[in-house]
Design a protein around this nucleic acid. Structure first.
Length: 439
RNA sequence: GUGGGUGUAGCUCAGCUGGUAGAGCGCCGCGUUGUGGUCGCGGAUGUCGCGGGUUCGAGUCCCGUCACUCACCCCA
């Protein structure tokens, strides 16, 4: 065998025809976010390890970055601070906010589209290096609730603009669940949330038993929790259905009105392609979320789990004196695009950006072909000149293989649209490709 | 990290109870000698993942190893 490298599992690389589509997606997302006034930032790839490793499950997956030399000397040298590569964009962003708080305008709204790294077992839609698109709004000391509505709506609009299968935003509110459980009198509210979160893997009966054994609920309380978790609607009718369960709690009421506001606030933005539903079983693990929580699912790709998610955290960051509450949503660019490419659901783009191939008659007249190319390029038309003066049939095939739609014959000064076969005389100083809408 | 599956041509894969490597697609050439795609004819391509073992003989059986892949865990 030669030295042909084998692929590295979990570190996907795209071919040019897929990369061009990914770039269009990233450009489209950026446009959408900027349309709503989100500023772009890029954070460094590494953070001090102690900032990333907070003792959770994720710690085992953190990639550590160190100098080769540092390992060779086995600690004999003065130790350098251990650096870990970020596993999401939220942790570095929180650090960024604290570090630059004095120079930022609050509420600070930013978007960030970058890779992240997690050393877990790769699978479809799950990689060790993946690109993520995040938007967040952060306030100083306080952040009005209407930003929860805003951030969801912005992501709805941004994803609606992409050529993806149907998407569904499943929204819930931590205050709603917590208030409900509290009002119901369940001893361990946090444990109850954790059990309810298992509903999509564990049968309802088992969850019911766990609610009793782990969260100290009575049989009847467990039933009520399960009833709450089955509520899933695309409008605000869930409010009445929850009230009908007869639980009275102040936090529950706040949660109900907040969730209603999110669903209601997205009404103008949703459509057949992207829908927003109140889904009262969404809990998002035991993260730092304190209010709005949501997950995004893609039709036909439910097995990927969520392709996006987010929510409200009352303490995104804190320096001890000031607390910075935030609300954000992230979208998994790699998780979404790569499976769509391999299934052929998302069509690849052209292999090269060239719109026109200038044929070459013979090597002596190559400069004539170059001159035509130059005048097209001057007018912003991506153009390349044929690699060799082969028979025209070969040169046309060269263009076809690369997805170049036009071939220019310099001897006759005619241009051929190889998709339709039409050929007509053209002037290098005025010819323009007909504007077809791509994708 | 735990448990399954699979490694054969550029790609997708076939290859029975061991007998010296195949198909389709793609690629190249010609028909059409400077206008592609269709069609016809012809052609090239492999250390059968790697290392060891059993055997007269291993793609095939055994052991090891590496890679890829699926599920669990967890999440984008």
């Amino acid at each position: 065998m030669s030295d042909k490298p084998t692929p590295l599992s979990g570190f996907p690389e795209l071919l040019p025809e897929h990369r061009v589509v990914e770039r269009q997606v990233i450009a489209s997302l950026s446009r959408s976010f900027e349309l709503h006034g989100f500023a772009n930032i890029e954070t460094r790839v590494v953070e001090p390890l102690e900032r990333l490793a907070k003792g959770g499950e994720i710690d085992k997956e953190i990639y550590v970055l160190q100098r080769l030399q540092a390992t060779r000397h086995g600690g004999a040298e003065a130790p350098e601070p251990a650096l870990g590569m970020h596993f999401d964009l939220t942790v570095p962003f929180a650090r960024y906010v604290l570090e630059h708080a004095g120079k930022l305008e609050f509420p600070f709204r930013r978007f960030q589209i970058q890779p992240a790294w997690r050393g877990e077992r790769p699978q479809e839609g799950r990689y060790r290096q993946f690109t993520q698109a995040d938007i967040d709004i952060v306030g100083r000391d306080e952040l009005p609730f209407h930003h929860d509505v805003e951030v969801v709506r912005v992501m709805v609009e941004a994803l609606d603009a992409l050529p993806l299968p149907n998407l569904s935003f499943q929204v819930n509110n931590r205050k709603l669940i917590q208030g409900f459980y509290r009002g119901l009198g369940i001893p361990d509210v946090t444990a109850a949330i954790r059990q309810i979160d298992k509903l999509d893997k564990v049968p309802a009966e088992a969850v019911r038993a766990l609610l009793v054994s782990e969260a100290g609920a009575t049989e009847e309380q467990a039933d009520r929790c399960l009833e709450l978790a089955t509520i899933r609607v695309a409008d605000t009718s869930f409010v009445e259905r929850v009230r009908a369960l007869g639980v009275d709690d102040e936090l529950l009421e706040t949660g109900l009105s907040e969730l209603a506001a999110v669903v209601d606030g997205c009404r103008e933005a949703v459509n057949e392609h992207v829908r927003v539903e109140a889904n009262l079983r969404i809990a998002r693990g035991l993260d730092y979320y304190t209010g709005t929580v949501l997950e995004v699912f893609m039709a036909g790709y439910e097995h990927l789990k969520s392709v996006g998610g987010g929510g409200r955290y009352d303490a995104l960051a804190s320096d001890g004196r000031t607390t910075y509450p935030g609300v954000g949503v992230s979208f998994g660019v790699s998780r979404t695009l790569i499976p769509l490419f391999s299934d052929g659901v998302l069509a690849p783009g052209p292999k090269v950006p060239s719109r026109v191939l200038i044929a070459v008659v013979d090597e002596e007249s190559r400069s004539a072909s170059d001159a035509i190319a130059t005048s097209l390029r001057r007018r912003g038309i991506p153009t390349e000149v044929a690699a060799s003066a082969q028979k025209y049939g070969k040169q046309i095939r060269y263009a076809e293989r690369r997805g170049i739609p036009y071939v220019w014959f310099p001897d006759s000064n005619e241009i051929k649209d190889i998709r339709s076969g039409e050929q007509q005389p053209a002037d290098p100083d005025s010819w323009t490709p007909t504007e077809e809408t791509e994708q």
